[in-house]
């Protein structure tokens, strides 16, 4: 615990740039996200805020720059991104629940699949005498994932929906399932890409409530949002992005009370 900032640093974004063809969407983003931070990213549409979020777990491959996550530069194409994505939960605007899986299968799919493939690798290693015998059996992995899924569903009050298909859920229910699906991997950070923008107004509340709970539990969150109330109340830091750059970065109280950049003032005057 000699250097507190080093220990709490979770994601370090260094000069991140992203172009789609000729169009340069991100023009050099530098930001550090610490453990326990609730970073709310706001900005006008087309400003690059979603692209920024999607670059954080390499859903979009950065054109240049570095994203240091847990000490690894995941922007490096040689890194096995799948291993790092397991520690970064992502929630989409359009929910993107797996349509061909029931609610509980949606939640269990990744933990079970990854658990079992790790088990196979461990067994292979043990067979060659290069590693210890795996601790868990296949059945244990599945039943643990199942218990965890039930626990998560109970937490959002949807345990009775475990065996239905996503098409039968309301938008708010879908998004809450999508959030716990990401939580099932026990991520270190959760990335939210406008999680309430596709919802009916009356369902926005239930999703925001769940996100507040997560924040209170100490989850690190990066959240692209248009919900200024949420950003002000829950956020620990606000990033204002426009034209691919962070124009302003501040604590919410200060950000909303005293916007420094003229562009920020203009934006806030329109949305508040």
């Amino acid at each position: 615990m000699t250097d507190a900032t080093e220990n709490t640093k979770l994601i370090d974004v260094i000069d991140l740039r992203k172009s789609f063809g000729e169009l340069e969407v991100l023009r050099g983003i530098n930001v550090t996200i610490n453990k326990g931070d609730i970073v709310c990213v706001i900005g006008p549409s087309g400003s690059g805020k979603s692209t920024f979020l999607r670059c954080l777990n390499c859903m979009e491959d950065p054109t240049s720059g570095h994203i240091i996550f847990d000490g690894t530069d995941i922007a490096d194409m040689k890194v096995d991104i799948n291993i790092h994505r397991r520690k970064m939960g992502m929630v989409f605007q359009q929910f993107n629940l797996f349509n061909n899986k029931t609610v509980i299968q949606n939640i269990m799919l990744a933990p079970v699949h990854i658990g079992l493939s790790d088990l196979r690798k461990a067994k292979l290693k043990a067979a060659f005498g290069k590693g210890p015998k795996p601790e868990k059996t296949k059945e244990q992995i599945i039943s643990e994932a199942h218990d965890r899924a039930i626990e998560l569903l109970t937490r959002i009050g949807l345990q009775d929906k475990a065996d239905v298909y996503p098409s039968t859920l309301s938008g708010g229910q879908k998004q809450r399932v999508a959030i716990v699906r990401a939580l099932a991997m026990n991520p270190e950070v959760m990335l939210f890409d406008e999680p309430t923008s596709a919802l009916d107004p009356e369902m926005v509340g239930e999703v925001l409530d769940l996100m507040k709970q997560l924040a209170l539990d100490g989850m690190t969150m990066v959240c692209v949002t248009h919900e200024m109330g949420f950003a002000r109340e829950v956020g620990s830091r606000i990033l204002f992005i426009d034209e691919g750059k962070i124009l302003e970065e501040n604590a919410p109280a200060e950000f909303f009370a005293n916007p420094k950049h003229p562009r920020t003032r203009e934006f806030l005057s329109k949305v508040l």
Partner: peptide, 27 residues
């Protein structure tokens, strides 16, 4: 099949081929 299905699979750490086999191709 909606592109979001592949994205969601990749986002939880599944590989392209796993997401393809378990999510996209069945649909």
């Amino acid at each position: 099949v909606d592109g979001g299905q592949m994205e969601a699979g990749r986002a939880v750490g599944l590989s392209f081929s796993t997401t393809m086999m378990k999510i996209v191709i069945p649909q």
